[in-house]
């Protein structure tokens, strides 16, 4: 249930607090965090300004070290990609300006229909994160049970159980999970599991200054996203759509839905997201059947050949 943040803010007029505020998420995110309910992120990329507050908040709270030190050469992007030490990553996607020779067959890739100068060309920004899939392939592939669904319907790696086999890394259709060679464990966003248990909203959502990252109950977030898409369509941004909500792109291949979903205005590939992610576990039975069929076929062929050779000798 959504609660207006101002409803409880009046209870705390002081600017200095000596204790943790009980159910602080009601003030900062307008949501009460209770075990047994489904929580997630709604990332509205149309209001992301690329400030990277989410990256900083994530690193700060989770005590994650800075990695990939040095210049990437990728414009304003200094973290490069999601990794074992970077659980939030802001994509900076510079779009090509519209050109005079753009045709219906080869349309412009710019965000506006006018001729923009190069330095004013359109930018897409998206804060990427673990999708906390409903049917999480990483969890399905984990042989030790280190990956599990929490009481908040999020997916977390238990570090003391992870043996660093890396199956989850190849199973993730979004390329989110990563192994850290230094400690030999798999790492990814925990959706701030420890904060949720303490009644705090995740650090990235709390730090986001434009509400691009919204935390809440999934049903509430889906409603918010649908309203936002309608609003954008009414304003003329007809390219807006959700990625990861039920029956939308991103929720393909038996994924059902993603607890961290996005509002996008371009193809998923433009944001480095797969157009149609699938569950690798769905391919196990066909692959096994294909293997067995091959063995049976080869055995049959060998039997026919040996039988033919014996007949010739006789």
């Amino acid at each position: 249930m959504e609660i207006h943040p101002f409803a409880r803010a009046r209870e705390y007029p002081d600017s200095v607090f000596h204790d943790v505020i009980p159910n602080e998420s009601e003030l900062t995110g307008g949501v009460t965090i209770e075990p047994g309910k489904q929580y997630g992120f709604f990332t509205d990329t149309t209001v992301c300004i690329g400030c990277k507050s989410c990256e900083v908040a994530c690193k700060e709270w989770n005590n994650l070290p800075a990695d990939d030190i040095g210049l990437t050469g990728q414009s304003y992007d200094n973290t490069g990609a999601l990794s074992a030490n970077t659980w939030r990553h802001v994509n900076f996607i510079e779009k090509k300006q519209a050109l005079a020779d753009d045709t219906a067959e080869r349309p412009a890739r710019g965000v506006r229909d006018n001729d923009q100068n190069a330095f004013q060309s359109g930018w897409l920004m998206m804060s990427d994160v673990c999708k906390h899939c409903h049917h999480a392939p990483c969890m399905e592939s984990c042989p030790t049970g280190a990956l599990f669904k929490t009481e908040f319907d999020t997916v977390v790696v238990q570090q003391d159980i992870c043996n660093g086999c890396g199956y989850c890394v190849s199973a993730c259709p979004f390329g989110v999970v990563a192994l850290n060679p230094l400690d030999g464990k798999a790492h990814k966003c925990t959706l701030c599991y420890d904060r949720l248990k303490g009644g705090l909203e995740p650090a990235c959502a709390k730090a986001c200054p434009t509400e691009s990252i919204q935390f809440g109950e999934l049903s509430d977030l889906w409603e918010r996203a649908a309203t936002r898409v309608e609003d954008l369509h009414a304003r003329g941004v007809t390219s807006a759509y959700t990625y990861g909500t039920p029956d939308a792109p991103g929720a393909t291949g038996d994924m059902k839905y993603l607890n961290s979903f996005f509002l996008l205005t371009d193809r998923p590939e433009a944001y480095n997201l797969p157009a149609a992610p699938t569950r690798p576990s769905n391919r196990v039975a066909p692959a096994f059947a294909a293997g067995l069929s091959t063995i049976a076929g080869l055995a049959l062929a060998a039997a026919v050949l040996f039988a033919g050779a014996k007949t010739t000798r006789d």
Binding site: W61, N62, N63, L64, P65, Q159, D183, K185, D194
Partner: peptide, 9 residues
């Protein structure tokens, strides 16, 4: 002073 998974301050 701070512990998160296998990381500490």
């Amino acid at each position: 002073t701070v512990v998160q998974e296998g990381r500490f301050q």
